[in-house]
């Protein structure tokens, strides 16, 4: 095993695998609860990073109208425009790169969590061979190994297998991918809520495409991989939404407002940016006041 893999396993992967099994034992051998608990614990550990990212996203949302004004005002003087933008960023305390680092740090953790779930579910013999090397042994006794195999049945689903539920309709079996649909829905919802709006048409189009195909892509992944992974995706998405609301202190009515973002974006076009429609780009005095307390 190469040194990088060894260190990664020792510091991230192995503790995660064992923690997942301990949670499974502690939560009445319910693997769904164990995945939920692990996801919550990880999100708590990552809270400072996530909060920083989400605050940056929020501030960028709030700066959009002012940035747009600057772009219009200094359309012919790029140097002045840049100076004013910098000034604006500095005044607002926004770091344009603030969103990147937390995401990059989360990335290996996401992979490790996925791997931990798959390894603990022990879908196949090779996975169990690898698992054997990861489990902690207490006083030489394989306490955690006796928990294997994981009770993988959850309602209609075997968490260790892809979702294959069919309903007969007129003599034909129609697939009913409930978990996959939940993954698509929650991914779309969390992306919709957390993706900052943009006044740049190209960025906006990219964002809209991303908001469409990323949920579908994760849905495709979920349909083809173990249902346990779908649980993780769903819980992660829901926690992300709740955390975003906590960080931005934006509980009241945020559902309705976010779901009407399409109209909000339209309202952010130059012809209507000063209109009365409360677009997401418009700074809201009430929230600003609350945030400054």
């Amino acid at each position: 095993m190469n040194p990088i893999t060894l260190v990664t396993n020792l510091l991230f992967f192995q503790p995660l695998v064992n923690l997942l099994l301990v949670l499974y034992a502690a939560l009445g051998r319910n693997f769904v609860l164990a995945i939920v608990a692990l996801t919550v614990l990880i999100r708590l550990l990552l809270y400072p990073l996530m909060a920083q990212q989400q605050r940056a996203a929020k501030k960028m949302q709030e700066l959009q109208p002012r940035l747009q004004e600057l772009q219009k005002k200094y359309a012919k003087d790029r140097e002045k425009l840049a100076q004013e933008q910098m000034k604006l960023y500095k005044e607002a305390g926004v770091n344009p790169l603030g969103g990147c680092l937390p995401l990059l740090i989360q990335f290996p953790i996401l992979i490790a969590v996925y791997q931990a779930i798959i390894h603990v579910l022990a879908l196949n013999p090779i996975a169990v061979i690898d698992l054997a090397k990861l489990l902690y042994r207490f006083n030489g006794f394989p306490a955690l190994a006796t928990l294997l195999p994981i009770q993988s049945q959850f309602l209609l689903w075997d968490l260790g297998r892809p979702e294959r539920i069919f309903i007969p309709v007129g003599g034909i079996l129609i697939p009913l991918p409930i978990m996959t649909l939940l993954v698509i829905l929650t991914t779309w919802w969390s992306q919709k809520i957390m993706t900052p709006p943009s006044t740049d048409p190209q960025t906006r189009m990219t964002t809209q495409l991303m908001n469409l195909y990323m949920p579908l892509f994760f849905g495709w992944i979920s349909y083809n991989l173990a249902v346990g992974l779908s649980i993780y995706f769903i819980v992660t998405n829901l926690i992300s939404v709740v955390q975003f609301a906590l960080v931005t202190r934006d509980w009241r009515g945020f559902l309705a407002r976010r779901f009407t973002r399409g109209r909000g974006m339209a309202a952010a076009t130059p012809s209507s940016s000063s209109g009365s429609t409360p677009s997401v780009g418009s700074p809201r005095p009430r929230r600003k006041a609350r945030g400054s307390r």
Binding site: A57, G99, F107, I111, M194, T195, T203, F217, I221
Partner: peptide, 16 residues
């Protein structure tokens, strides 16, 4: 920065 979550997602999904 704003595009990154999407691309990270794609990379993540491909890795998965």
């Amino acid at each position: 920065a704003w595009k990154l979550p999407g691309w990270i997602g794609v990379l993540f999904a491909l890795l998965l």
